[in-house]
């Protein structure tokens, strides 16, 4: 019961924050609200038993990406213009997409159903056999690092790509003493 009440409150706050972001024109406020949104999401993840994800969302969504966005605002501008274009087309697009999503939910198993396909097919293997096969208490770590370790290697590659991408876009690779003189050549 308590859980339901917490969830309802969290949802109300999430939706309020999201709507506020739509309307706000001060970018500083937008970024702060998006940090709040991430923190609320992290709390929601805790109630859904995903503590690892909550930890990451808090560190990334509320931490790093807020810092980066503040940095961007400092380098660009602090407010947005009021939208000038008509909002009918976006609204139609969004309602259409939402309708397809809604249609898709109609045949979904109930929330928390222990007999849902996702719960009975692969999950039991990870939750029982990983004790013998990997012997790590945190099953999320077992899957992340070993069963689906290749996805994690891909994830590291994505981070690597982003790192060198930002360097390429903003500054380029600098070596110890090599400076701009030779760029002109």
């Amino acid at each position: 019961m308590i859980e339901t009440i917490i969830n309802v409150i969290l949802f109300a706050m999430l939706v309020t924050t999201a709507f506020a972001i739509v309307r706000t024109t001060r970018l500083f406020a937008v970024v702060m609200l998006s940090g709040v949104f991430s923190l609320l999401t992290a709390m929601l993840f805790v109630t859904l038993d995903a503590v690892d994800v909550a930890f990451t969302e808090a560190a990334v969504g509320a931490g790093i990406s807020t810092v980066l966005m503040l940095g961007t605002i400092a380098l660009t501008t602090r407010s947005t213009k009021a939208p000038t274009r008509s909002s009918t087309m976006p609204l139609v697009l969004v309602v259409l997409t939402g309708a397809v999503l809604f249609y898709g939910t109609l045949d979904m198993p109930n929330f928390g159903d222990p007999n849902a396909p996702a719960q009975v097919h692969l999950a039991p293997h990870y939750l029982t056999d990983s004790i013998e096969e990997i012997d790590v208490p945190n099953v999320v770590t077992s899957i992340l690092a070993s069963y689906r370790g290749f996805d994690t290697l891909g994830e590291v590659a994505v981070v690597f790509t982003a790192g060198i991408g930002v360097l390429l876009i903003l500054s380029g690779l600098r070596r110890r003493r090599e400076e701009e003189e030779e760029d002109e050549a």
């Binding site: 790093i64 810092v67 980066l68 940095g71 961007t72 605002i73 400092a74 380098l75 660009t76 501008t77 602090r78 590291v156 981070v159 690597f160 982003a162 790192g163 930002v166 360097l167 903003l170 500054s171």
Partner: peptide
């Protein structure tokens, strides 16, 4: 890698002259 990339991104952003 994550430590390196996050610091590299910070350096790249901080190395630009701020507008505000």
């Amino acid at each position: 890698t994550v430590t390196g990339v996050m610091i590299a991104i910070y350096y790249a952003f901080a190395g630009r002259p701020p507008r505000l």
